[in-house]
Design a protein around this nucleic acid. Structure first.
Lengths: 180, 180
DNA sequence: CCGCTATATATCGAACTGATAGGTTTGTTG
DNA sequence: CAACAAACCTATCAGTTCGATATATAGCGG
């Protein structure tokens, strides 16, 4: 699923500006499964407009750039439903954190500890984000995503707390061996 | 952490060809946190060779393309250790599966069920991969990644089994409402 | 009044993907 | 045993996407 399609999907939930779409991918429900930069969102919206899948209503503001509010068209709705029928592509995941873990034997122990502490805090922030998103309305999809996000983040926090000694003791053992 | 750096990291564990590096990112431990295509791996290795961070020993084979075995140099080792000190970039995650969940109200119920079944099977495959990787040697980082991967995949399987009715019943309820 | 954050648009070089090309060896199966 | 598939190995390239940056204005706190 590319930027084009996710933009369509978000617009199928309601009209939005490019900025708001990016924000949804950064702080809304879509942040749990997608993210994209302006550099791909704006060209995507321009192309979707060309193809008649969305329309653009330009709200002229005084003294600042025009707000371009995009809305999905019936053709866009149909194109989106269609694209949901195409086979799912595999998840793509890239994690500096897990890479750091894998290569942690080449890392100063103090830095490793800092990274682990930071990571726990990040998971806690995401739990808080999910709590905030969960207030109010709830489609079945959102309810599923909410609980999914909660469980994953809780597991990660618990796992790091329980297993960090595997990494930190590994370092200690190596130090003891080196001391012999 | 870009392709360059991960290639360096993999080479710090032992010499390899471009093909083997790609395989490690697809089927080895690195697959848990990184993936890259040939289109980025080969140029990265060429550039690293130019910069003297890796060396390339060309093994001429009879009747097939030369095997280019890359090895890390002391400068490469140092560059890699250095790059581990740079602040971690946030994880990047993109999931067609979770997107499909979020938009599942626009999806035929039968297809939703198929996607959920497929997903459980994918998680089971990954559990099997982790079991295979876990045979033999084990650095602290690998032990941590192993258990991390196991727990996450187990949680996902269990969660889908326990909560799929939230999505599927949602659909059923909508059908009942439509029938009135 | 300075710096910061939020709103909003947009571009651009660099990085990366996904598909394709090209050729060989090894293993399997009808 | 021949045909076929899968693994091995290098490599390119169009198109997509990232990350940083530019440009403005409003509003808030120190």
């Amino acid at each position: 699923m590319d930027v084009r399609t996710v933009c369509l999907g978000i617009l199928s939930r309601g009209s939005a500006t490019g900025y708001e779409i990016q924000k949804a991918m950064k702080e809304g429900w879509p942040s749990l499964f997608f993210e994209a930069s302006y550099g791909s969102i704006y060209p995507a919206l321009a192309k979707l407009t060309d193809e008649g899948l969305v329309t653009c209503r330009e709200e002229t503001e005084v003294g600042r750039p025009d707000r371009k509010v995009y809305s999905i068209t019936p053709e866009g709705d149909q194109a989106f439903s269609q694209s949901l029928l195409k086979p799912l592509t595999p998840d793509r995941y890239r994690s500096d954190f897990l890479a750091m873990i894998y290569f942690s034997d080449s890392l100063p122990p103090a830095l490793l500890q800092k990274y682990l502490d930071d990571r726990i805090r990040e998971h806690q922030s995401e739990l808080q984000l999910i709590d905030e998103l969960s207030e109010g309305d709830q489609t079945p999809g959102e309810a599923f995503l909410m609980e999914w996000g909660r469980r994953i983040n809780q597991l990660c926090i618990e796992f790091i707390a329980d297993n960090r000694d595997v990494l930190e003791d590994g370092v200690v053992v190596q130090q003891a061996e080196a001391a012999e």
